[in-house]
Measured scan of single mutants.
Amino acid sequence: MTEYKLVVVGAGGVGKSALTIQLIQNHFVDEYDPTIEDSYRKQVVIDGETCLLDILDTAGQEEYSAMRDQYMRTGEGFLCVFAINNTKSFEDIHHYREQIKRVKDSEDVPMVLVGNKCDLPSRTVDTKQAQDLARSYGIPFIETSAKTRQGVDDAFYTLVREIRKHKEKMSKDGKKKKKKSKTKCVIM
């Protein structure tokens, strides 16, 4: 069974824990209790493949930012979460993405942009803004509501699919490099 290491990042209060708990335990946590770091595991079937999701729910508070490099190193894919009623959390996505790329030393890291709290009427981040940002990053965008469960499975499952595509691409690139290195030079 394939294991996928997913990391949920975003500013404090955007609903990272609520999304994760909704996926794992099928219930909505409405009281806000700032996370330092929590880890969850769940076995699911995605596109006919049974897999184990190892999900790291991270601290959004700035005082825990020193811990970010460590979990970013171990993560295979990242859910970059903002709240649709919090423009600052949307603007912060850029910083999370840049930090992930720096730590992973790669421009090509599996990510999904997630606009959470889409059940709320007080939207300050337009869907088109988020779609445009995701398009500019070359990553999928999904709106979710941890409260109603809308888009929750889709967000995590899409990230797994992005990781699969990335692994497939990397193995193809690896095979191309191996083929090239088999060419021999004969000096007579």
Score class of each variant (00 low, 15 high):
residue 101 K to C: 15
residue 23 L to W: 10
residue 56 L to G: 02
residue 105 D to M: 15
residue 54 D to L: 09
residue 188 M to H: 14
residue 159 L to V: 06
residue 135 R to I: 15
residue 107 E to Y: 06
residue 40 Y to Q: 00
residue 186 V to H: 15
residue 64 Y to S: 01
residue 70 Q to I: 04
residue 74 T to E: 11
residue 24 I to V: 04
residue 167 K to W: 12
residue 38 D to M: 00
residue 15 G to R: 03
residue 108 D to A: 09
residue 158 T to W: 09
residue 169 K to M: 06
residue 122 S to K: 05
residue 4 Y to S: 13
residue 169 K to F: 15
residue 146 A to F: 00
residue 152 V to L: 06
residue 17 S to L: 01
residue 75 G to T: 03
residue 49 E to D: 09
residue 108 D to I: 09
residue 161 R to A: 14
residue 40 Y to V: 00
residue 76 E to Y: 09
residue 11 A to M: 08
residue 53 L to P: 03
residue 5 K to A: 04
residue 118 C to A: 11
residue 131 Q to W: 09
residue 21 I to S: 02
residue 114 V to A: 05
residue 122 S to A: 10
residue 72 M to L: 02
residue 41 R to N: 04
residue 132 D to E: 06
residue 103 V to T: 15
residue 70 Q to A: 15
residue 98 E to L: 02
residue 58 T to E: 05
residue 37 E to C: 15
residue 34 P to K: 00
residue 49 E to Y: 13
residue 50 T to Q: 15
residue 70 Q to E: 05
residue 75 G to V: 03
residue 116 N to Q: 11
residue 90 F to E: 02
residue 63 E to N: 02
residue 111 M to I: 08
residue 12 G to D: 14
residue 28 F to S: 01
residue 80 C to N: 03
residue 40 Y to E: 00
residue 84 I to F: 11
residue 122 S to L: 07
residue 111 M to C: 05
residue 129 Q to M: 06
residue 49 E to Q: 11
residue 21 I to P: 00
residue 80 C to M: 09
residue 11 A to C: 13
residue 117 K to S: 14
residue 73 R to F: 10
residue 82 F to H: 09
residue 32 Y to P: 01
residue 142 I to H: 15
residue 104 K to T: 15
residue 178 K to M: 04
residue 10 G to T: 08
residue 115 G to V: 12
residue 144 T to M: 04
residue 84 I to N: 12
residue 108 D to M: 13
residue 186 V to K: 13
residue 136 S to F: 05
residue 35 T to E: 00
residue 70 Q to C: 13
residue 157 Y to C: 09
residue 123 R to S: 12
residue 166 H to Y: 05
residue 152 V to S: 12
residue 127 T to R: 06
residue 8 V to L: 07
residue 108 D to W: 04
residue 6 L to Q: 15
residue 10 G to I: 04
residue 104 K to C: 14
residue 26 N to Q: 13
residue 21 I to N: 02
residue 32 Y to K: 00
residue 50 T to N: 11
residue 133 L to Y: 14
residue 20 T to M: 01
residue 95 H to L: 06
residue 90 F to T: 11
residue 182 K to W: 05
residue 10 G to P: 14
residue 35 T to W: 00
residue 22 Q to R: 09
residue 74 T to P: 04
residue 165 K to T: 14
residue 137 Y to H: 10
residue 134 A to D: 14
residue 56 L to P: 00
residue 48 G to P: 09
residue 158 T to R: 07
residue 71 Y to K: 14
residue 131 Q to R: 09
residue 34 P to E: 01
residue 10 G to F: 15
residue 160 V to T: 07
residue 77 G to K: 03
residue 24 I to R: 05
residue 82 F to Y: 07
residue 142 I to S: 14
residue 180 K to R: 10
residue 46 I to D: 14
residue 106 S to F: 06
residue 170 M to G: 07
residue 132 D to Q: 06
residue 135 R to G: 12
residue 156 F to I: 06
residue 27 H to M: 15
residue 176 K to G: 14
residue 152 V to G: 10
residue 112 V to A: 09
residue 44 V to W: 12
residue 84 I to C: 12
residue 100 I to R: 02
residue 156 F to V: 04
residue 37 E to T: 07
residue 86 N to L: 04
residue 91 E to G: 07
residue 8 V to Y: 01
residue 187 I to P: 15
residue 136 S to V: 10
residue 49 E to V: 10
residue 184 K to H: 03
residue 37 E to F: 15
residue 178 K to Q: 10
residue 122 S to F: 07
residue 54 D to Q: 14
residue 160 V to P: 02
residue 30 D to F: 05
residue 111 M to K: 02
residue 188 M to G: 14
residue 95 H to Y: 04
residue 158 T to Y: 07
residue 138 G to T: 06
residue 153 D to V: 07
residue 135 R to Y: 14
residue 63 E to L: 02
residue 93 I to F: 09
residue 48 G to F: 05
residue 118 C to M: 13
residue 61 Q to G: 04
residue 107 E to F: 07
residue 45 V to F: 07
residue 19 L to Y: 03
residue 145 S to K: 05
residue 44 V to R: 13
residue 105 D to S: 09
residue 7 V to W: 09
residue 102 R to L: 13
residue 136 S to N: 09
residue 5 K to H: 04
residue 167 K to A: 06
residue 24 I to S: 01
residue 110 P to F: 02
residue 165 K to P: 01
residue 56 L to H: 09
residue 157 Y to Q: 07
residue 112 V to S: 02
residue 142 I to M: 03
residue 157 Y to G: 11
residue 135 R to K: 15
residue 73 R to L: 06
residue 24 I to P: 00
residue 129 Q to G: 14
residue 25 Q to Y: 14
residue 26 N to Y: 08
residue 128 K to Y: 06
residue 159 L to P: 01
residue 167 K to P: 05
residue 40 Y to P: 00
residue 15 G to E: 02
residue 59 A to H: 00
residue 81 V to S: 12
residue 167 K to M: 09
residue 188 M to C: 06
residue 96 Y to P: 02
residue 118 C to Y: 09
residue 78 F to E: 02
residue 74 T to K: 15
residue 123 R to Y: 09
residue 67 M to W: 15
residue 146 A to Y: 01
residue 95 H to G: 14
residue 123 R to P: 08
residue 95 H to C: 05
residue 65 S to A: 13
residue 134 A to S: 14
residue 40 Y to S: 00
residue 152 V to R: 12
residue 51 C to Y: 13
residue 182 K to M: 05
residue 158 T to V: 07
residue 182 K to E: 04
residue 34 P to I: 01
residue 66 A to P: 09
residue 96 Y to S: 06
residue 7 V to F: 02
residue 187 I to T: 12
residue 3 E to A: 14
residue 135 R to S: 09
residue 53 L to C: 13
residue 29 V to N: 02
residue 163 I to G: 02
residue 109 V to Y: 03
residue 104 K to Q: 11
residue 117 K to E: 14
residue 119 D to N: 12
residue 126 D to K: 08
residue 38 D to F: 00
residue 188 M to W: 08
residue 9 V to G: 10
residue 151 G to L: 14
residue 32 Y to E: 01
residue 109 V to A: 08
residue 53 L to G: 10
residue 167 K to V: 06
residue 8 V to G: 06
residue 54 D to P: 15
residue 183 T to G: 04
residue 105 D to E: 07
residue 53 L to H: 02
residue 83 A to F: 01
residue 87 T to G: 11
residue 183 T to I: 09
residue 188 M to V: 05
residue 6 L to N: 03
residue 128 K to I: 07
residue 34 P to Y: 01
residue 36 I to R: 00
residue 162 E to D: 07
residue 67 M to Y: 09
residue 69 D to F: 10
residue 12 G to A: 14
residue 5 K to R: 12
residue 41 R to H: 04
residue 173 D to L: 13
residue 3 E to L: 10
residue 183 T to H: 09
residue 23 L to K: 12
residue 25 Q to E: 03
residue 101 K to E: 12
residue 76 E to V: 12
residue 136 S to K: 04
residue 152 V to F: 08
residue 110 P to T: 04
residue 153 D to K: 06
residue 126 D to G: 07
residue 37 E to D: 07
residue 134 A to W: 13
residue 45 V to R: 13
residue 108 D to F: 05
residue 104 K to M: 14
residue 114 V to S: 02
residue 153 D to F: 06
residue 29 V to G: 01
residue 96 Y to W: 14
residue 94 H to Q: 15
residue 116 N to S: 10
residue 42 K to E: 05
residue 7 V to L: 02
residue 138 G to D: 04
residue 62 E to K: 04
residue 157 Y to D: 06
residue 155 A to N: 01
residue 154 D to W: 05
residue 168 E to S: 07
residue 87 T to A: 12
residue 106 S to M: 13
residue 68 R to G: 05
residue 130 A to E: 12
residue 42 K to D: 03
residue 105 D to F: 14
residue 67 M to F: 15
residue 36 I to T: 00
residue 152 V to Q: 14
residue 107 E to H: 06
residue 125 V to L: 08
residue 173 D to N: 08
residue 109 V to F: 09
residue 38 D to C: 00
residue 8 V to T: 15
residue 186 V to A: 15
residue 127 T to P: 08
residue 114 V to Y: 00
